[in-house]
Amino acid sequence: MQLQVALDVLDLPSALTLANQVSEHVDILELGTPLVKSAGIAAVSAIKAAHPDKLVFADLKTADAGELEAALAFEAGADLVTVMGTVDDDTIRGAVAAGRKYGKQVVADMIGVVDGRVARIQEVAKLGVSFVEIHAGLDEQARPGYSIQQLLEDGRLAGVPFSIAGGVKVDTIGAVREAGAVVAVAGGAIYNATDPGAAAAELKKHATR
């Protein structure tokens, strides 16, 4: 299972600093949506230039013009981009077409999908995405009683390649691996740590056991 770090900061210098701290211990560097909106698509190029040996994930959360937006990210150096799993199927197909053109990967982000999530995961998987990200956003995670377990159960039931984002930390990453995820996405467990590099190293150790 690969480990992805969400660079959920708001400016490029902070993103580069965080990437430098953790890159040794992670497989995928994700530019979070707020970072892309704040710093622009050029931030993708900057992260890729600084870490050419890492996969760079542009979390665009595309909702329309899938082929166009995916192409923008791929041309900037992204290896993976996200398209929303809730959108029109043709938007997803467009992003996938761009992925095929550039030899890159498209990920369907299921944030906001709760009812019928397993069925929708299976539908979007058939549209050609590389894998599906089963994702609980920060607002959902902040609700009382939130648990990562439902994400894991939906991943098991869907039976397609998936990643998990939303509450991945040292005490849950083992369960993410056992559920069969291809990627575990960690955000706050790394960037809120006193030593992000050490936090990433510990997560990576649990991801690969």
Rank of each mutant, 00 (worst) to 15 (best):
L18S: 08
A42L: 11
G94V: 08
Q2L: 09
K48L: 00
V106A: 04
I190W: 14
V56G: 14
G174K: 05
F57Q: 14
R93I: 03
Y102C: 07
I190S: 14
G167N: 06
L72C: 06
I111A: 12
K101R: 14
I111C: 10
Q149P: 09
E153L: 12
G112V: 14
V185N: 05
A193Q: 09
V113N: 03
A125L: 07
M84R: 12
I190A: 15
E202V: 05
V107M: 02
I173M: 06
G85S: 09
G137Q: 08
A39L: 02
V168C: 02
E75H: 09
A200K: 07
D53I: 02
I111R: 01
L35M: 00
I164A: 06
G187P: 02
L12N: 04
A50M: 08
E69I: 00
Q141T: 12
R156Y: 05
V81I: 06
L80F: 04
D27V: 00
S45C: 00
E69C: 01
L35V: 06
V36Q: 13
A207S: 12
R156M: 08
P13V: 02
D90T: 08
I121R: 03
P196M: 10
Q141P: 12
Y146P: 14
T194E: 15
D171W: 12
D115L: 13
E140M: 10
L3M: 09
P34T: 01
A71E: 03
L10V: 13
A136C: 07
D109L: 03
L29T: 05
G155R: 03
D109I: 03
A198K: 15
F131C: 10
A39Q: 02
G103W: 08
A181Y: 10
K104G: 02
A15Q: 01
L80K: 05
L29D: 00
I190E: 15
H135M: 07
P144H: 13
P196I: 11
L16A: 10
R177Y: 05
M84H: 13
G99V: 02
T17D: 05
V176Q: 03
T172D: 07
S147Y: 02
H206V: 15
E133M: 15
S38C: 10
N192R: 15
L152S: 08
L16M: 07
T86I: 05
D109M: 03
I28S: 13
V22R: 12
H25C: 13
A65T: 06
E30S: 13
E133W: 06
L138P: 01
E133A: 15
T172L: 03
G94P: 11
T208Y: 02
V83L: 09
V132G: 08
D171M: 10
T208E: 07
